[in-house]
Amino acid sequence: MLLGLRDIGSRINGGFVVTPPRPVAPASLAAPSPEVSSSSSPVVTQGDVIDHYVKGLPDNDFKRKVKRCLQLFGEFLGHNLPVADLRQRAVTDFMRDICRLPDKWARRFDAGESIASMLAVKAAKVMSPTTYEANYRGPLGTFLDVSSKTFGDDGFRAMSVKHIKYMGDRLPEEDQQRALRPDELVTLFEGDAFARIAQDPKQEPL
């Protein structure tokens, strides 16, 4: 330090002082290379989150129901979609669009038909309000809530299906027991099936 002060004083008075070599920092103080300091984390996709969630469920009928719901969710939005890109509007659109699917969409999908082709044609019969609530809105709502807590650090936002109402044309209690309509009575007693049974004495109990 004294040598440094001496050199500074000499320079102030106009003297010539040789600039000393730049000191070399020890390796322990060296800054890490860009490759080490900027290591990137893998992108978490919607497929990753769905697989993680389904694996944590017990093996029962409820798991099969949830798995089918999330399979449809993944088909709509894309299994490779980064969770940081998932938005509430996409969830809302999904819930509204599934109300237009045929009630037997799963069988047709398993047979190779695409979701897009099923939505392109107006279905003669869509899913019921009960199915919508029990098989889709309920399970998806729980999935979104759990996933936002588990994968929040990866960008999975808090989203909800709470206020997304059923948009189909089925009635809530249409499958409940009721009186037969006149046209249904005609079909029942004057149709081909009843005629075949009536002609066969062995089928009298039917």
Rank of each mutant, 00 (worst) to 15 (best):
L2M: 07
L3T: 06
D7R: 15
D7Q: 15
S10L: 15
V18Y: 01
T19K: 12
P20Y: 00
P23I: 04
V24G: 00
S28D: 10
A30R: 13
P34K: 08
E35A: 15
S41H: 11
P42T: 13
V43I: 15
G47V: 05
D51P: 00
G56I: 12
D59W: 08
N60F: 02
N60T: 03
D61Y: 08
K63C: 12
R64N: 14
K67E: 15
R68N: 12
C69G: 04
L70R: 03
Q71C: 05
G74C: 08
P82E: 04
P82L: 03
A84P: 02
A84Q: 15
D85P: 03
V91T: 03
F94I: 05
F94M: 09
F94A: 08
I98Y: 04
R100S: 13
R100C: 01
L101N: 01
D103C: 10
K104F: 03
W105S: 06
R107H: 08
F109Q: 06
G112H: 07
E113V: 07
I115S: 02
L119C: 02
V121F: 03
T130N: 11
Y132Q: 02
Y132S: 04
A134V: 05
L140T: 04
T142E: 12
S147P: 08
G152C: 04
R157L: 07
A158R: 13
M159I: 09
S160Y: 06
H163S: 13
Y166Q: 03
M167I: 00
D169S: 10
D169W: 02
L171W: 00
E174A: 13
D175S: 03
Q176A: 14
R178S: 08
L185M: 14
L185V: 15
E190F: 10
D192W: 06
A193E: 14
A198C: 09
